[in-house]
Amino acid sequence: MTKAKARHILVETEAECLALKQQINDFETFDQLAREYSLCPSGRVGGDLGIFGPGKMVPEFDQIVFNETIGEVHGPIPTQFGYHLIWITDRK
Score class of each variant (00 low, 15 high):
Met1Leu: 11
Met1Arg: 13
Thr2Asp: 15
Lys3Asp: 13
Arg7Glu: 15
Arg7Asn: 13
Arg7Trp: 13
His8Trp: 05
His8Ala: 03
His8Met: 05
Ile9Ser: 00
Leu10Thr: 00
Leu10Ala: 01
Val11Ile: 01
Glu12Cys: 10
Glu12Ser: 07
Thr13Trp: 03
Thr13Arg: 09
Thr13Asn: 01
Ala15Ile: 09
Ala15Arg: 06
Ala15Cys: 05
Ala15Gln: 02
Cys17Tyr: 05
Leu18Ser: 03
Ala19Thr: 03
Ala19Phe: 05
Leu20Met: 06
Leu20Asp: 05
Leu20Trp: 04
Gln22Met: 12
Gln23Ser: 14
Gln23Thr: 11
Ile24Ser: 10
Ile24Trp: 07
Asn25Val: 11
Phe27Asp: 14
Phe27Glu: 15
Glu28Cys: 08
Glu28Met: 14
Glu28Lys: 15
Glu28Tyr: 05
Thr29Met: 06
Thr29Gly: 03
Thr29Glu: 04
Asp31Thr: 12
Asp31Gln: 11
Gln32Val: 06
Gln32Cys: 10
Gln32Met: 10
Gln32Asn: 04
Leu33Ala: 00
Glu36Tyr: 07
Glu36Asp: 12
Glu36Trp: 08
Ser38Thr: 03
Leu39Ala: 13
Leu39Thr: 13
Pro41Asp: 14
Pro41Lys: 14
Pro41Phe: 13
Pro41Gln: 11
Ser42Ala: 15
Ser42Thr: 13
Ser42Cys: 15
Arg44Pro: 08
Val45Ser: 07
Val45Trp: 08
Val45Pro: 08
Val45Gln: 09
Gly46Met: 00
Asp48Lys: 06
Leu49Ile: 14
Gly50Tyr: 09
Ile51Val: 14
Phe52Tyr: 06
Phe52Asn: 04
Gly53Thr: 13
Gly53Trp: 10
Gly53Lys: 09
Pro54Lys: 11
Gly55Gln: 06
Lys56His: 13
Met57Leu: 10
Val58Ile: 11
Val58Arg: 05
Pro59Ala: 03
Pro59Thr: 00
Glu60Phe: 08
Glu60Met: 06
Glu60Ala: 09
Asp62Cys: 02
Gln63Ala: 08
Val65Ile: 06
Val65Tyr: 02
Phe66Trp: 04
Phe66Leu: 09
Asn67Thr: 08
Glu68Ala: 02
Thr69Trp: 05
Ile70Val: 10
Ile70His: 05
Ile70Asp: 04
Gly71Phe: 04
Gly71Cys: 03
Val73Gln: 02
His74Thr: 09
Gly75Thr: 00
Pro76Trp: 01
Ile77Tyr: 08
Pro78Thr: 02
Thr79Ala: 04
Thr79His: 10
Gln80Glu: 15
Phe81Lys: 15
Phe81Glu: 15
Phe81His: 15
Gly82Phe: 00
Gly82Met: 00
Gly82Cys: 01
Gly82His: 02
Tyr83Trp: 12
Tyr83Gly: 15
His84Tyr: 14
His84Lys: 10
Leu85Cys: 04
Leu85Gly: 01
Leu85Arg: 10
Ile86Ser: 00
Ile86Glu: 00
Ile86Leu: 12
Ile86Phe: 02
Trp87Ser: 03
Ile88Asn: 01
Thr89Asp: 04
Arg91Gly: 08
Arg91Asp: 08
Lys92Ala: 12
Lys92Ile: 14
